[in-house]
Amino acid sequence: MLRTPTGGAGPGAAAAGDRLVSIGTVLSQLRDEFPEVTISKIRFLEAEGLVEPRRTASGYRKFSPQDVERLARILRMQRDHYLPLKVIREHLDALARGEQIRLPAPAGPSRELLDGAWDGEGDRPTAARLGRAELLAAAEVTEAELADWESYGLIAQAEGGGYDAETVTVAKLVADLGRFGLEPRHLRAVKAAADREAGLVEQVVAPLRRHRNPQTRAHAEATAKELAGLSVRLHAALVQTALGLRLQ
């Protein structure tokens, strides 16, 4: 039986005057801070008893401002501290009782902070790495699942060992896709396409990275980041276009 999240916004919990919103609106509100969040992720957190939106007579979810803030707090604990859901639930219960909680130190500097701090001189700094047990806890997956994903090349350790922050994101997305019945063997084509796109970006920025001028080398990193973002947007648009044509 699912637990009702202590302090969450259960049925009838929204204060008078609070505007209840749909799950799509919640997604839009969270996307600025959590661009990787999905509707399936929100539904998963609900299924785990971490948030309890109200339901209309026809069964549609309706979220209060308190629900949205609770979701944001959960996502921050996952992103910044790599806490498993069990620990997050305990922290939320403690906060609901008015207790103080102590969160572990953030796992390491983010890619954005590193990008801003690097001036192009010397070796590029790297974000803190996670061990295997930390990755399993952060992505909320089993050892068997992780080993399966590694066998298909979807997950790999970084040079020198350990896993970087992007690997945690990949693991979470693979897990989310798995809930729709997509297995690692189905995702090999996606990985191959990503490798090809990365190769195209590398062709463009490689000459800039070899330049003697530190500012030019720094520009190479900014260019690579921009090209990667455009590539992701193009990929998403092409998928949506292809789906639209098939549904006509």
Rank of each mutant, 00 (worst) to 15 (best):
5 P>I: 10
6 T>A: 11
7 G>F: 06
8 G>V: 12
9 A>G: 15
10 G>M: 09
11 P>M: 13
12 G>A: 13
19 R>E: 12
20 L>C: 06
28 S>I: 02
32 D>E: 09
44 F>E: 05
45 L>G: 00
47 A>V: 00
48 E>K: 14
56 T>H: 04
56 T>A: 13
58 S>F: 03
59 G>L: 01
61 R>A: 08
61 R>H: 12
62 K>A: 11
66 Q>G: 10
75 L>K: 06
76 R>D: 02
78 Q>R: 12
80 D>R: 02
81 H>S: 13
84 P>T: 14
90 E>G: 15
91 H>R: 10
94 A>W: 07
98 G>N: 07
99 E>N: 11
101 I>A: 06
111 R>K: 09
117 A>V: 14
119 D>G: 08
126 T>H: 15
126 T>G: 08
127 A>Y: 03
130 L>W: 04
134 E>S: 07
134 E>N: 05
135 L>S: 06
142 T>W: 14
147 A>H: 07
148 D>E: 15
150 E>N: 13
163 Y>M: 09
165 A>S: 09
168 V>F: 14
169 T>W: 11
172 K>R: 15
174 V>Q: 05
181 G>D: 10
181 G>I: 03
187 L>P: 09
190 V>R: 02
190 V>P: 01
203 Q>W: 00
212 R>V: 10
222 A>Y: 05
227 L>K: 00
233 R>E: 13
236 A>H: 07
237 A>T: 12
240 Q>A: 11
244 G>A: 12
245 L>K: 07
245 L>M: 07
247 L>C: 10
